[in-house]
Every structure is written in structure tokens, then in C-alpha cells.
Design a protein around this nucleic acid. Structure first.
Lengths: 190, 190
DNA sequence: TAAGGTAGAGAACGACCGTTCTCAACGTCA
DNA sequence: TGACGTTGAGAACGGTCGTTCTCTACCTTA
């Protein structure tokens, strides 16, 4: 049965390609990484790459989409391991702090992609907005569980921490955001 | 006296060039705008452009630096027209809301530049960090005048509002941030 | 008026981009 | 075994980039 074997190989190669491309795009920027560099790093022939993704833009979108799924799943897994609505909201910022402190952290991949291609690529812009909306809605669920109308402030503090950590390289922004959220939870609770 | 006349013309051309380049870079992205497009839009010969700025990177840095000065001067002029420390902090967010609602608004020029060139250009990265630090310090002055230790939360809310408005295109983020700052001012005041 | 330095207009250059094409090697089925 | 469809390796293509060079025209100064 050659057809299933081919499909399986496609699936594996696609995953390996996404791994390679994601690492390169995140570390150096999307426009700075040519398809030849992706080919070299992945070990896949250019022809095969273009059979798996018709254009570079398609590859970029696929990278962002898979990263979105993984990123939010990882966040949710961390948060939902915690008991108590307020503790969960605070756990978001613990997870963000750990993420920002990872070696090789270079800011939010979607904010960076927006800066690079938001004006040039409709597909990338759509993907970035979809990620931000999904993160907003995810966060909104946890905040609403506290019974306090704090979705927007908490979301803006998270975004501020992410962008600030990305630019300054200092991961303490997430800690500051966490303290601010504590204050808001306290202040709105009276 | 031909020397002074030349210097004056250089000064004027430099200013016109910065105007043109800033508008193009902001609207379309830096990498998407070639030097030939800058030449065409400015009406200046390529030779003259390269005599005023040795490289494109120099031009980009000069654009960011002048924009930083203007941006923060405009903000300060608005804020310091207001009386009362807390009102001043809130006025920051009124100014941000107006800025985000301007036609052609496409997010924070420095965040965008960081996404495009932060990994590739040390000079651009330095300029972006300098702007963010300067804005942070400016804000810090106004917040400290309230006597409340709220610099970091207020700064993170501002950054979150700017980046969110830039990505979603919805300027209401600044209004949400303003409400959050009001709550923090109230909560920390007891 | 004659000579010389400077500036403008745009062609040219080398590098690199995303993408496609060539061509030889190979595995597969009649 | 022999023909064929598919693949891999990488050369090639058209385009664009940042930057430099050419060459003509002019303006200045003696």
C-alpha cells in the first residue's frame, strides 16, 4: 500500500519542516530567512517543500497556526492544573514569566510577524488577529470565572508584558503584570 | 556665501527625506519600501539621498529617532496642559486613544520596526529600546507625581493598548486601559 | 570666455529573493 | 527485463534589493 505510506511520509516531513521553519523564522525573522535556508536546515529538497506548501506565505501561515495551537494548549494545561478562579488568572502570568525567561525568547511571534508582514500579507494579518482573539477569549473565560469584569485590563496587562519582555529582553515584565492583576482583583472585590 | 546655503539646503532636504521615508516605512513596512521608492516619493536623486544618509539603516534610525522626539513631545504637550497628577496620568490614555484613532494608524512604529529588524539590525534594536525606555521614564515621572507606586502597571497597560490597537485596528483598547488605570488609582489610594 | 569641480538622472552591479526547470537516478509494475 | 512515473539535487530564471558608477549639464571662479 504505497498511498498511505506516502501520506504518512508527507505528514512527518510537514511536521519536520514546520519545526525547522518555526525555529528559523522566530530566531531571525521571516523575511531574513530564505527558502534555501529552510531547505538546508530541514534537509528536504526544495521541490518537496513546495509540494507540501505551495508558497512561502502558506508555510508562514502554517507555522503560525501550529504555534498558536501549541502555545495556547501549553498555557491552558498550566492554568487548569491550578484550583480557584483567581489563582488561575494569576497562573497565566506565572506561565508568561516562565515563557519570557526561556533561552532564545525573542518576543511574541505573532506581534513580530505583524510588524514584518502585517501590511504586506493579508493571510498573515488574519492569522495574527485570529491568534490574538483566541488568546483574548481563552483569558476571558478564566477571568469571568472570578465573577469580576476584568477581562480587558488583564488582557492588556498580558499583552503589555509580552511586548515589553520581547523588546527589552527583561522577563520581569510578567511579574509586574501579575502584581497589577493582584491589585485589580483586590480592588474590584470590595 | 555658498557653504551656509549648502548646509541649509542639506537641512531642508534631510527633513523632507525623513518626512517621506517615515510615511512610507510606517504605512508599508521598512523592508517593503526600497530606496528607489523613497527616491521617487521624495523627488531627491539617489546620489543626494546617499550623501545625506550613508545607508538605508542610517535613514531608518534617523526616522525612528526624529519620530521619537516628536511623539513624546506631542504626548508631553497634551499631558502637561492638564492640572492634577492623577488627571495627567489619565490624560496619557486620552492622547493614546486619539493617536490610535488617527486615519492611517498602523500600530507602534517601534514595535513594528522591532518585529522587522530587531533580530537583524543592532542599530534599530538600540533605537527601539531607547524609545521604549524614554517613554517609560516619561510616564514614570507623571505616575510618581501621584505618590502611588503604579509606574509598571500603567506602563504595561499603555503598551498593551498600543500593541492591541495596532493589531486589531480597534482603538478602544486605550479606553479600556484608561478605565483600568482609574481602578488602580482608586484601589491604591485607600 | 575657458576650465574645473559638482550635481542630477538613471543605468548598472552584484547579491539574493521566491519559484520553476532540467536531468539523471530510482523504484515499481507489466 | 524494460518502460514509465516519481523523486532528488541543484542550476536557472526573472525580479528586486541596496548601493555605486557613468556621463552629461551646469554653475562657479579666474
Amino acid at each position: 500500500m504505497p498511498a498511505p505510506a506516502t501520506e504518512e511520509r508527507d505528514r512527518l516531513d510537514r511536521a519536520a519542516l514546520l519545526d525547522t521553519a518555526e525555529a528559523l523564522f522566530y530566531a531571525h525573522g521571516i523575511q531574513a530567512v530564505g527558502m534555501d535556508r529552510v531547505r538546508e536546515a530541514s534537509g528536504l529538497p526544495l521541490k518537496r517543500i513546495y509540494r507540501l506548501f505551495a508558497t512561502k506565505e502558506d508555510l508562514v501561515v502554517a507555522v503560525l497556526r501550529r504555534r498558536d495551537r501549541r502555545w495556547r494548549e501549553s498555557l491552558a494545561a498550566h492554568v487548569e492544573r491550578v484550583a480557584g478562579p483567581r489563582e488561575r488568572v494569576l497562573a497565566v502570568f506565572d506561565w508568561l514569566a516562565a515563557w519570557c525567561a526561556e533561552p532564545g525568547f525573542r518576543g511574541c511571534a505573532w506581534i513580530n510577524a505583524h510588524g514584518e508582514l502585517g501590511a504586506a500579507s493579508e493571510a498573515v494579518l488574519t492569522e495574527v488577529r485570529a491568534h490574538k482573539r483566541a488568546f483574548h477569549d481563552q483569558l476571558s473565560g478564566w477571568v469571568r470565572a472570578t465573577g469580576l469584569p476584568l477581562t480587558e485590563p488583564v488582557y492588556l496587562l498580558a499583552e503589555g508584558a509580552i511586548v515589553t519582555a520581547g523588546i527589552t529582553g527583561d522577563p520581569s515584565a510578567a511579574g509586574h503584570a501579575r502584581k497589577a492583576v493582584e491589585a485589580l482583583l483586590r480592588g474590584a472585590a470590595d
